[in-house]
Nucleic acid binder design. Structure first.
Length: 575
RNA sequence: CGGGGCGUAGCGCAGUGGCUAGCGCGCUUGGUUCGGGACCAAGAGGUCGGCAGUUCGAAUCUGCCCGCCCCGACCA
């Protein structure tokens, strides 16, 4: 491809819109163009790269027994009502009304449709397992699209759906997908780690997310420095630092004028925060919930939401708290009636806590569970924090940010039961198919690759997903010998199957070199009066900047060898 | 949805009531340059986000609306 003909120009100035490196670079390099918030056109370079990523995914899905299909974007809303996911998705769902006033939605994902697709074809255990996948655009009306392709409203996604006859089959499918994901991310030159993930409200016992570690990531990941434990903070567990168990002392009120927060109370009384119990109030689908947790810990709202099995969870407002007869800042589980109380199990790790007295300016000392109060549920609803011991090995937990590029999920029978995807097993018993789903955000993967591999000059593409492999960069093109040498190199390389982006513009060297760095193809070939005099071709590697001079003969073969050597990139780690 | 910011040429921005709306980059033409974003000269390019209002006069003031960015909430 000739740069002079290529759609998309590089920008000299930093685009004002963009914040995250990948977004900025994609705009600056002319890879994408925004059409609306979270909606993008992909220019030829980005599209080539996306297609390469898709091809890698396709090969690995096919190798893992997947069959590719195409499913509709438009989906009747009734399907989403059958599974109650219209409510679960809420305003995220894009809906349209047709001329007959029939409501349809733009598919944000395809569990309903694929289950509908498969159920007619699966009648017997002999029809299973089945692994069906698609690579298509999906639509989610995100409250806040951000970071360019990181979180878009229209985005390309690969989803594979597995259908198995039993749990063992599901486990096979799950393992096959995890193995495939390992290869996919490795082939894309991405270091992705599998972390335990929240399985959400729907079905699923087990779920892993694949994270690319990056500052700009939207997810907090907790991992162990000693063993291979890693989890999204939404799910992560930790060993809560224990406190010495003391002999329970009698409850006693203590005056705490104006001390409303845990740190104020702890500071005022001269005790560590871990010697207090914190009360936090939530509204769960309209009902007030009283949450108790040890003062040095924070409430994990995902864990709480899972414990409550509710759709909508938010902090309660002060009037809502007061309406329940509670005194914010001094609320207490002691003597509480008519409010659901959920406790973190940390309230059992310690004794003689300070709690609110449910009277202004007063707390109580020496509160002990269960002597002084009762709760409706007690379980782990705390945020695991860096520095806590690992729940597996006791090592130190650490934290990082990650971009979620993939998600594998054991769905179970949620969809098959509701949509009637049933089969007869060996004994002739009718059972729902056991499902799994396995997604990869294609555009997000592209953005992550740039996020993970760039420098202050531009993108550094891994060979496997680079739009082109070679940036042919002649200088002083107006000199006929240079022009002729460049044209003949371009011809020779392309005839030998090399992917060459040929900068045939009459720009000055500085412009060309800067664009070469910005666009980030793995190898830059420089042709100039100087190299011609020496009878060589200059090759520079984008990744390490190393420059070599190669003889003109068999140049295509020499470059192929270099690209092969460059292709051994970083890998991924398995859980 | 809460908070903050922005909307003027393809891109980045200046212009707080006054005459014909500017600068840099990019673009066009001619010339000189040529190994890390060259230089000279001449040009083209604008419903100032939209609508309504105030005014002799609005990019500028007021109201409403729309769009975009960032932080938070949210994200089976």
């Amino acid at each position: 491809m000739r740069v002079s003909r290529l759609l998309g120009r590089t920008l000299r100035q930093e685009p004002g819109e963009a914040e995250t490196p990948s977004h900025r670079l994609m705009l600056k390099a002319g890879l994408v163009q925004q059409v609306a918030a979270g909606v993008y056109s992909y220019l030829p370079l980005a599209w080539r790269s996306l297609r390469k990523i898709e091809q890698i995914i396709r090969e690995e899905m096919d190798a893992a027994g997947g069959q590719e299909v195409m499913m509709p974007v438009l989906q009747p809303i009734e399907m989403w009502e059958e599974t109650d996911r219209r409510r679960a998705f809420g305003p995220i769902l894009f809906t349209v009304t047709d001329r007959k006033d029939h409501v349809l939605c733009l598919g944000p994902t395809h569990e309903e449709v694929v289950t509908h697709l498969v159920r007619r074809h699966v009648q017997s255990y002999r029809d299973l397992p089945l692994r069906i996948y698609q690579i298509q655009n999906k639509f989610r009306d995100e409250p806040r699209p951000r970071g360019g392709l990181m979180r878009a409203r229209e985005f390309a996604m690969k989803d594979l759906y597995s259908f198995d006859a039993d749990e063992a089959g599901l486990e096979d499918s799950y393992q096959a997908m995890m193995a495939a994901y390992y290869r996919i991310f490795q082939r894309c030159g991405l270091q992705a780690i599998a972390v335990e993930a929240d399985s959400g409200a729907i079905g699923g016992k087990e779920s892993h997310e694949y994270m690319v570690v990056a500052e700009s990531g939207e997810n907090d990941v907790i991992f162990c420095g000693s063993c291979d434990y890693a989890a999204n903070v939404e799910r992560a567990q930790s060993v809560k630092p224990p406190l010495p168990v003391e002999t329970p002392l009698p409850l006693e009120p203590v005056s705490t004028p104006g001390m409303k927060t845990i740190s104020e109370v702890a500071g005022f009384l001269g005790i560590p925060r871990s010697r207090t119990l914190k009360a936090v109030f939530y509204m769960a689908d309209g009902n007030l919930v009283f949450v108790v947790i040890r003062g040095d810990l924070e409430v994990n709202e995902v864990k709480l939401k899972n414990a409550l099995h509710c759709f909508d969870l938010r902090l309660a407002t002060d009037p809502e708290v007061a309406a329940a007869g509670l005194v914010a800042g001094f609320a207490s589980p002691i003597g509480l009636k008519g409010v659901r109380v959920i406790a973190d199990d940390s309230i059992q790790l310690g004794s003689n806590f300070v709690v609110g007295a449910n009277r202004p300016d007063t707390h109580l000392r020496n509160a002990n569970y269960p002597r002084d109060f009762s709760v409706d549920q007690i379980l782990d609803i705390a945020i695991a924090q860096p520095g806590h011991p690992c729940p597996r090995c006791g090592g130190d937990l650490r934290g990082t940010r990650g971009i979620e590029v993939g998600h594998v999920f054991k769905l179970g029978t949620f969809f098959s039961e509701r949509l009637g995807a049933l089969f007869l097993d060996r004994e002739g018993t009718q059972r729902p198919v056991i499902m799994g789903c396995y997604g990869i955000g294609v555009g997000r993967l592209l953005a992550s690759a740039i996020e993970a591999q760039h420098d202050d000059k531009g993108i550094i593409w891994p060979v496997s997903i680079a739009p082109y492999h070679i940036y042919l960069c002649p200088l002083n093109l107006d000199q006929p010998p240079v022009r002729e040498a460049a044209e003949s190199l371009y011809q020779e390389l392309t005839t030998n199957g090399a992917e060459v982006l040929y900068d045939d513009r009459s720009e000055s060297p500085g412009v060309k070199f800067n664009d070469a760095d910005l666009l980030g193809m793995p190898l830059r070939l420089t042709v100039s009066p100087r190299t011609l005099r020496q009878g060589v071709v200059e090759v520079q590697s984008r990744r390490d900047g190393q420059r070599d001079y190669l003889p003109r003969e068999n140049i295509a073969q020499q470059l192929q060898a270099r690209l092969r050597a460059l292709s051994s990139g970083p890998g991924t780690s398995q859980p």
